[in-house]
Computed example of a mutant assay.
Amino acid sequence: MPSPQVEQEPSDCERPALASSDHPPVARARVGVVLANLGTPDATDYWSMRRYLSEFLSDKRVVDYPSWKWQPLLQLVILSRRPFKSGEAYRSIWNSEKNESPLLTITREQTRKMAEALEARHGDRVRVDFCMRYGNPSTDSVLRRLQAEGCERILFFPLYPQYASPTTATANDHAFRTLMRLKWQPAIRTVPAYFEHPAYLEALANSVREAYDAAETPPEVLVASYHGVPKRFLTEGDPYHCQCQKTTRLLRERLGWEESAIQTAFQSQFGPEAWVGPPTVDHVAELARQGRKHIAVISPAFASDCVETLEEINEEIRESFLAAGGERFTYIPCLNDRDDHIAALLTIVENELAGWL
């Protein structure tokens, strides 16, 4: 007689250790890694942009004015006009082939490469995914999916080299909000700022060397342009401004350049209050008026190219420099999915996973 058929458990499931024989199989215990980026609208039309901007600009970490004062202005005035302008900016850089923003395309590719690298080292013990603080895929949906796949421990990695309240902190806040709603919380770790990490600095320096080597004539100055924050954030304890200044210095030292060869500026200012500076758009124009004919601009605070780099820097800030008498403008792309960047992120992830694998 043929031997009886034994029902096979799903390969992705197993009975918990020391469980009784009739305990149903559950998802195998794993470790999750989540790469968290800023966010993206789903499309460039008015209502898609309005939903995205409303979520973004309603975040108290981004705009911390009292709601009674800010929300009427935001909902009735700003969001009646700004979605048109922002939609136009996004359309100028939109990935029409995939019908998505470049930030989404790049973050997905970063995640794919990270997943392949971790699988090669640890097999299927690690799940890698990505989420957006604003828009989709949402932080909540990704954390819940990883938990359902058996991730009892999750490393949450905000892709911001420098810590800032409106970026790193709000990404972590949102992850913790999901945990607040879960009956069974996974253990979670967050990755700290990594602007000083040697592998990150080397990848950044490599991108500069490659851009300068490819130029017919080397730029006369490199402008490191960081996203701006209100000046009061500095006095309130946010370390972002200091970490940006230090990033520029560490990059210069790694390149072996003189102090005058690289300068720091801040972009994307809005609202009436004072912001850290100088403003990039004004600073590059001043460089042109000083007789600098060829400059390069890099964005060390962004792990992935997005509207703030591809449109604001490579279009608006470029135009400001050329209109003031500059002749050549070189934009150095973000590190994106460069192999040395992925290797740097992988080194950071492996360090933060110590004791979990």
Rank of each mutant, 00 (worst) to 15 (best):
R232S: 04
I188V: 10
C13E: 12
V142M: 03
C131M: 00
K85W: 07
L35A: 10
T330D: 02
A324F: 12
R153L: 07
P41R: 01
I317D: 02
A323M: 14
C151D: 00
R121D: 09
A27Q: 03
F302K: 09
L234R: 13
A301G: 15
E286H: 12
L57W: 06
L201G: 01
K246Q: 15
M1W: 15
Y200W: 14
W70E: 13
Y65V: 06
K98L: 15
G256E: 00
A43M: 07
R232L: 14
E97L: 15
A354K: 11
C151W: 08
T190Y: 06
L346V: 13
L35C: 12
E236S: 12
D42R: 09
F157R: 01
K85Y: 06
R153F: 10
G277T: 09
L353N: 07
N351V: 12
T170L: 12
R249K: 15
W94P: 11
V128H: 02
H341T: 07
L179R: 05
K113G: 02
D42W: 00
H283Q: 14
G123W: 04
V349N: 06
A214Q: 14
H294F: 05
V142C: 05
L346E: 15
I154P: 03
K85I: 13
Q162T: 08
P161F: 06
Y331H: 08
L155G: 03
V221H: 06
L310V: 08
V77A: 14
S268P: 10
R338A: 03
Q110I: 10
A27S: 07
M1N: 15
Y160W: 08
P272Y: 05
R338W: 04
R318G: 02
W47I: 13
T190M: 10
D282G: 10
L118P: 04
D173R: 04
C334Y: 01
Q263E: 09
N314A: 14
I342P: 00
Q75R: 12
H23K: 15
E327F: 08
Y90V: 02
L146Q: 09
P333N: 04
A211Y: 00
E7F: 03
V31M: 15
R61V: 04
Q290V: 03
T111H: 10
D238I: 02
Y46S: 08
T217P: 10
A29W: 13
L255G: 00
D173G: 11
E116C: 11
V6N: 13
